[in-house]
Amino acid sequence: MEDFLLHTSDLSVGYKSGNTQKSVAGPLNLTMKAGELICLLGPNGAGKSTLIRTLAGLQPALNGIVKIDTENVAKLKPSQLAKKLSLVLTDSVKAGNLDVFSLVSLGRYPYSGWLGGLSKEDKKIVKWAIESAHVEMFVNRKVSQLSDGECQKVMLARALAQDTPVIILDEPTAHLDLPSRIELMRLLHQLAKETSKGILISTHELDLALQVADQIWLLKKDGSVAVGSPEELVLNGIFESAFDKAGVLFDKSTGTFNIHQNTGKSVFLEGNGAAAFWTKRALLRHGYSLTDSASALLSAEVRDTQEGTTWLIKSGDTIEKRDTMEDFLLLLRSR
């Protein structure tokens, strides 16, 4: 028990209005260890934000307790909690005139003097936070001059400056373009490992979460949670069932969701490398499904040679060759 950074027992989260309680999720028994990056996943409306807000002490739990470092979050004063847990929220920062350095320095709030002055030690930690989050390039800029991705990293730097064992980020990758999303996820993964902090993020980036998470907390529509390593959850089918919706298919073999309707035709494809991968994608897009059995009606091969890529379609003993993917698909459709 002692080496858990964050621990919930029989936690149920939701909203109170008057005497009525509306439970969104629970009871939840969750644990986070030092150095772990945990991704909180779940379909819209499953209660991810409510859980995050409850863990962070921004709203009271309906039942059960949240412990950080063996201390009950509900019993900590805001100033004590601020030394245990820092947050990156989806709230927009309206103070556009604030410069990045001052913003990151605000992370030292729980430690600074009554007028907010920074000690030498504080400044050292602010400098470390700025370097760790890779925001030193725009430390002179104003918040209004940052892109969404840069702003997220600055807010992360502020959370790092707060120097807490646990950091929670609510949908940090929303509004970011793909490279920024990947960069941020990689940064979080690396920080969890290097600093032995526990980092919890809620996200909709399933594929990225599957790649970087040490643990996944999968909130389901019925309010229960499935916990495990990404691989475990995919292989035992829990992942698939949580996002079950008509027309959405999770492909276990690739770890991605298919957005294409299947036409019922299946193809056996031979070949390796990038050409084969993208041929598979093209086939899926055109409504074919891929099979492992060589006895399928349609059989094709991708050959990557020095002269270029060629596509072969085999039926019985005849083999037809095409030099572009477009021609290959045309030929396949005529079969």
């Binding site: 921004l58 309206k94 007028l115």
Partner: peptide, 24 residues
């Protein structure tokens, strides 16, 4: 007002952030 300048600084980021940084 001068004594509360630290509180005002924290409120720049909005109330949720202010609370998460230990402001009552």
């Amino acid at each position: 007002s001068i004594a509360s300048s630290k509180l005002l600084d924290a409120l720049l980021l909005g109330e949720n952030y202010a609370r998460s940084m230990g402001l009552t």
